[in-house]
Design a protein around this nucleic acid. Structure first.
Length: 200
DNA sequence: AACTAGCTCAACCGCATTCCT
DNA sequence: TAGGAATGCGGTTGAGCTAGT
């Protein structure tokens, strides 16, 4: 098997980041840009592994990261995108400017799962439960580009109405490109606007 | 005031994927 | 083309906070 990406040197810090560590990371990235995460800690004078630095930067230190509670329209969008994409948090976060995958994932697990459950919707598969019967509202994990755009556009339209039952989206859900047909530049998980096949 | 249970979210871990030689 | 290195992703953990008793 592969060796772990971060060799534990024995003196690596773990746990919460201090202000000094944050500042070192910010200063280094401002001065040098995002270079090699693996070599960054040593170059920046941090006793952290590269993965830890990357996570800290992406989730909390990036200048464009949006902090604070989720708006109602953001909640609505997350629910719709989760119904379309499943637990592909980075893809979902890519549709929410300034939000990170970790933040969306945490918010889903701590708030939205309960919210859906209280509405009689299974948060895992987005099926609506009526009189003990399950009704599929979305095909979790399968999505068209237009479906995702529909959900994203709803950000402007639905905030007044709150969450609507997913059934009324009337979406046509179909599988995306297989991974073997993807290239590095259009890799589904790395783009805010994923490339997906449309099946009319 | 002290204790406990539940909740939130920052951070870690292991695996998958992509990149590079 | 193969294999190792680097990066990214999603699941999980646990420390700290808050509400309830």
């Amino acid at each position: 098997m592969r060796s772990p990406c971060c060799v534990n040197r024995g003196n690596n810090n773990k746990g919460a980041w201090s202000k000094e560590e944050d500042q070192k990371l910010i200063d280094y990235i401002r001065a040098h840009g995002r270079v090699c995460w693996r070599s960054l800690p040593e170059a920046a004078g941090l006793l952290r592994c590269g993965k830890s630095c990357r996570l800290r930067w992406i989730n909390y230190l990036r200048p464009d990261v949006k902090r604070g509670r989720f708006e109602e329209d953001e909640e609505d969008l997350i629910i719709k995108l989760h119904a379309l994409l499943g637990n592909r948090w980075s893809l979902i976060a890519g549709r929410l400017p300034g939000r990170t995958d970790n933040e969306v994932k945490n918010y889903w697990n701590s708030h939205l799962r309960k919210k859906l459950a209280s509405m009689g919707i299974d948060p895992d598969n987005h099926r609506v439960i009526h009189n003990g019967r399950l009704h599929r509202s979305h095909s979790s994990g399968n999505a068209t580009r237009s479906s995702i755009d529909d959900a994203t556009n709803g950000l402007q339209n639905n905030s007044k109405n709150g969450f609507r039952d997913a059934d009324d989206l009337n979406l046509d859900l179909t599988i995306s490109l297989p991974s073997s047909q993807r290239t590095g530049s259009d890799h589904l998980q790395n783009t805010a606007s994923p490339t997906l096949l449309l099946f009319p």
